[in-house]
């Protein structure tokens, strides 16, 4: 329905490292996601991230679908992972 849009001032998954590391004991940007929309898989660091919005929105570079959403409230973090069928997390030193 729409013409290919322009992507605007986006960042990538590297920029989510701090927010994710506040929740998880390991670095999630080095983990691999599998996109629920198109089964594309790559490092979380390679997701396209929109940050000028009420939360962080990370989309699959292959199909534009939302893979991860992070919303920060003053005393909580909401992490929505429904766009990722799985995360494969490398364990350092094992």
């Amino acid at each position: 329905m729409t013409q290919p849009g322009h992507r605007g001032p986006m960042l990538d998954g590297n920029s989510m490292a701090g927010d994710l590391r506040e929740i998880f004991a390991v670095d999630v940007t080095a983990a691999r996601y599998m996109c629920a929309g198109c089964t594309h898989t790559d490092a979380v660091a390679t997701l396209m991230v929109w940050h000028q919005s009420p939360g962080l929105v990370a989309r699959c570079p292959n199909c534009d679908d939302v893979v991860i959403r992070v919303v920060r409230a003053p005393d909580r973090v909401y992490l929505d992972l429904r766009g990722s069928v799985r995360l494969e997390v490398p364990l350092e030193g094992s």
């Binding site: 998954g13 490292a17 701090g18 080095a30």
Partner: peptide, 9 residues
């Protein structure tokens, strides 16, 4: 500050 972070790049 918060870090260091990022394990891919």
């Amino acid at each position: 500050l918060r870090g260091p972070v990022g394990g891919w790049f």
